[in-house]
Every structure is written in C-alpha cells, then in structure tokens.
Design a protein around this nucleic acid. Structure first.
Length: 114
DNA sequence: TTTCTGACTCGAA
DNA sequence: CTTCGAGCCAGAA
C-alpha cells in the first residue's frame, strides 16, 4: 500500500509560486528552503520546467542572483523579461536589478502547506 | 532496470 | 576576484 503523500514536491512548488504577489519575484532556493528541501533548488527549477502544464507564473521565479536563468525556456527571446518589466520589475540583461526590493520570501510570507 | 541531464546553490581553492 | 565539485530529486531513453 502506498502512503500517498498529500502533495508531491512539484505540487508544493506550484502552490508556492502561484501565491507570488504581482510585481514580486522569488528564487528557487527560497522555495526549496521553504519546502524543507534546502539544497534541492534544482528540483524547483526542474518543477518549473514541468509547470508548463500548470498555471504557474514561472517568470516570477529567478535564481538567487536575480538572473533569468529560465528565460530560455519561454517563448521568444525576452518574453520572461517583458513579463517581469510589465509587473514593474526592473530587468536588465536577463537580470533583476532591484531584486532586494521585489524579492518575495515564501518562508516569511506563508505558513506551512501541509 | 540503469544512466544521464537539468529553469540551482554553496563551499572551497 | 574567478572557477570547480558535490548534493539534491524527478523524468526520459
């Protein structure tokens, strides 16, 4: 018999990303840490790759440096940057400028998911 | 089944 | 300052 978790890691990631406020961004590591994964930031990014089927604002998720590492996975060449700038996030050369201002920390803003 | 790769991060040299 | 290696989990071949 299978324990059947309530939510898989991917689902948790989606749940968090979907709660990212407009005009804010978060990082893979922050999400991973919030989920208790800590060093599994890669998995968060990998989850984003699979998030294409989910309604997740993946463009609001960047790496810890604020760099749009995943923009290459979006349509066109600068769609991700356009989406962020459209929300008031300054992005230059695939990198968020005022990351410290628009950064949204799930560990501080949310409670536990379970 | 094994093997490889990936939208990351951190510590060490 | 830059560069490298290891750890993490899931899905595809």
């Amino acid at each position: 018999m299978k324990p059947a978790k309530s939510l898989d890691f991917f689902d948790k990631v989606y749940n968090v990303v979907k709660q990212v406020p407009y005009g804010k961004v978060t990082t893979y590591g922050a999400i991973a840490k919030y989920l208790g994964a800590g060093k599994s930031a890669r998995i968060v990014g990998y989850a984003m790759n699979a998030s294409k089927k989910a309604e997740v604002p993946a463009h609001r998720v960047v790496n810890r440096n604020g760099m749009l590492t995943g923009k290459h996975h979006f349509e066109g060449t600068n769609l991700m940057q356009q989406l962020l700038e459209n929300e008031g996030v300054k992005v230059i050369n695939n990198q968020v400028q005022n990351l410290n201002e628009v950064f949204w920390n799930p560990s501080k803003a949310l409670h536990k998911i379970d």
